[in-house]
Amino acid sequence: MINRYSKFYFYISLIPLIVMLALHSQPADAYINPGSGSDLFQIIYSGILSVLMFFKTIFLKIKGVFIKTDNKEDKYE
């Protein structure tokens, strides 16, 4: 979901990108070539998303104090 909050976090999260670019991937034990670039990308991207999620979770927790939300079915399943 692309909203104004996630865009804000997106720019903040560019900082760890530079740090993580130095990382390398683990050996590929696969019958298809996973591509070392894509492997490295997942490490960087997941790092950025984790930072975003950290802020989002805090935001949602604060929001949850004021607005009660129902437990919804997992839409990703």
């Binding site: 390398h24 683990q26 590929a28 670039g37 894509s38």
Partner: peptide, 30 residues
Amino acid sequence: VQAKLQKDCEKRDIDYKKKSHITKQQLVLI
């Protein structure tokens, strides 16, 4: 970013032996 990294990794001699770590939560997040 992914296309750029793919290009860069093709050129560079990556040391695959070095360990990196993605948690399951991060895979779910992706």
